[in-house]
Amino acid sequence: MKRLSRLRRHRAAGPILLVFALFTIGTTFQVASAVSNTTTTAADRSATIEEGKQLFLKGCSSCHGLNAEGGGIAPSLIGVGAASVDFQVGTGRMPMADMSTQAVRKKVVYTPEEINALATYVASLADGPAVPTDAVLNYERDGSVAQGGELFRTNCAMCHNFAAQGGALTQGKYAPTLMGVEPKQIYEAMITGPQSMPVFSDKTITPAEKLSIIKWIKAAEKEPQLGGTALGRVGPVTEGLLVWTLGIGLLIGVAVWLAMKAR
């Protein structure tokens, strides 16, 4: 104890004690606040899940089942992940308007918060691809447009056409146009494989490569008319149509005028 009292009387004792006290208070506060933060997030999350569950029961369960286990007409959602929900509901494909050949892109029914709640609920059922964050989606910085084009032509053009305008699949299904689709949704489609579309795994097409694909699609979308009106960018069919209508039409029109007797 003597030793302690001697230290206590040391002239540096005051300042050291002060620093120590401040440090302790600070750390304690930090830890305390951190603890309280995690508890609130967990609470929020379970609240979100609950909200999502309620939305799900109201809007989705009639087809996908009360526990998202799927039914005769709709697939199970266990393990599809938040990305899948965000894509399907965020593009308005879900809820489906009618049981036709495939869900179509239409007006979005839910608010972003509701979509988040639904996605969180479905993600809570089993692990699955998460919604990519804005930090991940920095395709302008991380993508290469030329590499993206090459990847697009190898992996995407066979369905979505060389200029991402969409194309026909079997039995009336189709690959939609990618013009005007948000980068996040393109990314989600690649990792979740919605409807007819297959999944493009992160190992076979790396996240960086996916960003390149998005960058190329965006470049194609923004590309101005280099050679005049684009005729839908679907290849020779519309070109043939134009030459059989406007082209030969103009020429025959002039020929008729040429052979008409002047008054």
């Binding site: 369905c159 020779p236 059989w244």
Partner: peptide
């Protein structure tokens, strides 16, 4: 390959 690969008319 591209969807809609067609020849000229």
């Amino acid at each position: 390959i591209s969807a809609g690969s067609q020849p000229d008319w």
